[in-house]
Design a binder for these strands. Structure first.
Lengths: 148, 148
DNA sequence: TTAATTAATTATAATGATTATAAATATAGA
DNA sequence: TCTATATTTATAATCATTATAATTAATTAA
């Protein structure tokens, strides 16, 4: 898994230690496209690593986010922060009903970034582009239950 | 103020009552471009309306957001949700140091929305486009303090 | 206007994600 | 191995937001 190595390298290059916990968390992030929360990661890993603490998951995610190795999507209607291991510019589309998140590429996004970069005076560090809506499944459900 | 009337009309048309509390909150939102949080609105209004409760501010903001009359920006690094009375497609640029938020227009945004709309299968309800970075003031401060 | 109905507001307590703290443990280097 | 430092863990605390139920205000009909 290339991306797992990248995440660990990012930690190493920042002078941080590569612990078994951090390895497990990075491996989970790398092999996963469901935009997990800290709690999801913790639940998934504690089976194989019973001593793991939720605090460590939060710490590692915060560290990786500060280093720019992962993206913070933020809340999507369920009161918890989601993370995205994909740091390439892309759009997240969130279902407001079932909280499913999908990724969509967009070459226009980098253009917008260039615009903002040159016009805002800000030194840009990251971006978050989220669309909200109803996924196909939830549209179907809504249609059924309301008789519409 | 045109936009205040629009907000109140949205409530009316949804069959909701236009109470003094809701009027005050809508007036505050209309005359304000600082992307306030519920707490900010509450603090600002309770001087003139001592009986106002924070719960009412939350309720009203949630209602307006559900009706699509205001935008939810979400957290910007300070653990509280910010709202944006401007529902036209635009980009929010957030300073990760001082939490200042500015608006930037972008005609590319509607294009992206069209792309996502036709390609995702989602029924889109809203969008949130946030860039993170350091505002000019905080860049200057960072430069001074680090001697860089 | 008044009574009746319904919606909105308020006060209070509860929830739950995240963070703070300090002690225990593991890591990297001499 | 020993030492210094970073990390993890367990625990408790914080704080934004929501739930609940009682009070109050707004609307409608008489």
């Amino acid at each position: 898994m290339m991306i797992e190595k990248q995440l660990l390298d990012t930690l190493k290059q920042a002078g941080l230690r590569v612990t078994p916990q951090r390895q497990a968390i990075c491996a989970y992030l790398a092999g996963n496209d469901e935009h997990p929360t800290a709690a999801m990661i913790y639940e998934a890993l504690k089976e194989d690593m019973p001593s793991l603490s939720l605090m460590t998951v939060y710490n590692t995610l915060n560290t990786l986010a500060e280093l720019g190795a992962i993206q913070v999507i933020g809340q999507v209607g369920d009161d918890t922060v989601h993370y995205d291991p994909d740091t390439e510019p892309h759009v997240n589309v969130v279902c407001v009903s079932c909280q499913k998140i999908i990724d969509m590429p967009s070459d226009r996004l980098s253009k917008i970034r260039e615009e903002i970069d040159s016009q805002s005076g800000f030194k840009l560090l990251g971006a978050r582009m989220v669309f909200y809506g109803l996924c196909p499944d939830c549209q179907a459900e809504a249609g059924q239950s309301s008789g519409n």
